[in-house]
Nucleic acid binder design. Structure first.
Length: 425
RNA sequence: GGAAAGGUGGCAGAGCGGUUGAAUGCGGCAGUCUCGAAAACUGUUGUACCGGUUACGGUAUCGGGGGUUCGAAUCCCCCCCUUUCCGCCA
């Protein structure tokens, strides 16, 4: 949620920022409602002050036997007027809140302006020693490998649940589990994150807090009977750990890493990158979440990206970093880097991680603050998160990059102690 | 699924129609004392919003929403949540 005071004081900036994010210009409407709101508040609070003042004298009047009928009649009128104005105020405030809840965050000034993914900027690229984009043998794609080696069964996954629900079998299942454990351990031991294992069904307030609701409702699974949502990312439960809390400045930054399965309806995206693991309704992801002081959050973002990159370097998987342009940024993000790993079969880069700074956008929605020692006042924290990483896309890159001309898979060195085997096939 | 109890400030815990933002205790902060610390004593200590350059003034807030009333933490209605017991169960 954007800060209403900021909009009031910087309408031009906000207007430009919304346009850069391909969002509707709500500035005039917001300012108008804000104006009305404040004018009613002034009136109604005046009346309430009067009522309180008179009320406090009534016990004394009764004690001294004064007649209260005129006062009561007068206060009755005041009460009615208050009720009327309060009603108007409620209507205006809910309209204002509705607009603000549907309004995206603004991009940071360091984000390149652009309307679509075309304008994203490649920041850097990392390739393993001896890596080549062209191979001297026929590369099988991950679906073919999965079938040939009996490590993934998409048909049976479809039988069980529907398309987009992958079934890992045998060494494929072990490899998936090894990846999750490796990544979590790595972040805990080398990057100093605290481990969390959160609930994967969350309530509406949590989904509102991180910004998935109300706008992205169509992309979320929901369990209507119980008012719960399967999480689309661990970002939701982990960020909401501190909803409605005031954190101590000395505890910041707080860094959590956790694994959850992720559930996404992917409404309207059928036919696009649908093959195998490329776009699925359920996948596994290790997520990193940070709560930071505002002045440090952009530095923390760079560190977050490095933390995700370290995993890929350890796995020896080729990747590149993209800085997303304003038009490609997600609803809640102020700045975001995508990490893409190379798929030799698809001959393209696949998004395996997204590392974002949300500044105070989520904190304001979820009411997550910290008390600054110097001022003693609560302030909103900045929240950040990044995949570290999603296994589905990563699995594609690992299988395809580690395949041998005989169609076997060499297990990446760092995973071997987790899998207990070195080769698949 | 059945039964009961309960949701009050950072925490514990009073209040059950009228100067109650809310007793008391703990905690936090500041001061006195001390070479320093502890103890003791004294003071202070929520948040949000509105107005004001500041000082400050005002409003709201006792799980959420609605109602009764001149006036609600206190009375009435609806909802949510938590705890305990019984049943079921990984």
């Amino acid at each position: 949620m954007l800060d209403i005071k900021f909009i009031r004081e910087n309408p031009g900036l906000v207007r430009l920022g919304l346009r850069n994010k391909n969002a509707a210009d709500v500035v005039d409407k917001v300012l108008e409602l804000d104006e009305q709101r404040r004018s009613i508040i002034a009136k109604v609070e005046d009346l309430k002050a009067k009522r309180n003042q008179v009320s406090s004298q009534i016990p004394m009047m009764k004690k001294t036997g004064q007649d209260t009928t005129t006062v009561f009649a007068e206060m009755k009128r005041v009460g009615d007027e208050i009720a009327m104005l309060d009603g108007q105020l409620r209507t205006i405030e809910s309209e204002l809140e509705d607009i603000l809840r549907y309004t995206p965050n603004l991009a940071h000034s360091s984000v390149p302006v652009g309307s679509s993914a075309e304008q994203n900027v490649e920041v850097r690229k990392w390739l393993p020693d001896g890596f080549a984009f062209e191979n001297d043998f026929k590369i099988l794609d991950h679906v073919e490998l999965g079938k040939k080696l009996s490590i993934m069964d998409f048909d049976r996954g479809t039988k069980i649940s529907g398309s987009g629900f992958p079934l890992y079998i045998g060494k494929g299942a072990t490899l998936e589990r090894a990846l999750i454990n490796f990544m979590l351990d790595y972040h805990l031991h080398n990057h100093n994150y605290s481990e969390v294992f959160p609930p994967v069904l969350v309530n509406k307030e949590s989904m509102m807090g991180t910004g998935q609701l109300p706008k992205m409702e169509e992309d979320m699974y929901s369990i209507e009977k119980d008012g719960l949502y399967p999480v689309p990312t661990a970002e939701v439960p982990i960020t909401n750990i501190h909803r409605d809390e005031i954190l101590a400045e000395k505890d910041l930054p707080i860094k959590y890493a956790g694994y959850t399965p992720c559930f996404r309806r992917e409404a309207g995206s059928y036919g696009k990158e649908y093959k195998g693991l490329l776009r699925v309704h359920q996948f596994n992801k290790v997520e990193m979440v940070k709560f930071s002081k505002p002045e440090n959050s952009y530095n923390e973002l760079e560190l977050l990206v490095n933390d995700a990159e370290d995993i890929l370097k350890a796995l020896n998987v080729p990747y590149r970093i993209l800085l997303l342009c304003t038009g490609d940024l997600s609803f809640s993000a102020a700045k975001c880097y995508d990490i893409e790993t190379w798929s030799p079969a698809e001959k393209k880069w696949l998004e395996a991680s997204s590392c974002s700074n949300f500044e105070a956008f989520q904190a304001r929605r979820a009411n997550i603050r910290f008390r600054r020692e110097e001022t003693k006042k609560p302030e909103f924290v900045h929240t950040l998160n990044g995949s570290g990483l999603a296994t589905s896309r990563l699995m594609v890159s690992i299988l395809e990059n580690y395949q041998t001309p005989e169609g076997k898979i060499i297990v990446p060195k760092v995973l071997q102690k987790y899998t207990g085997f070195e080769v698949i096939g």
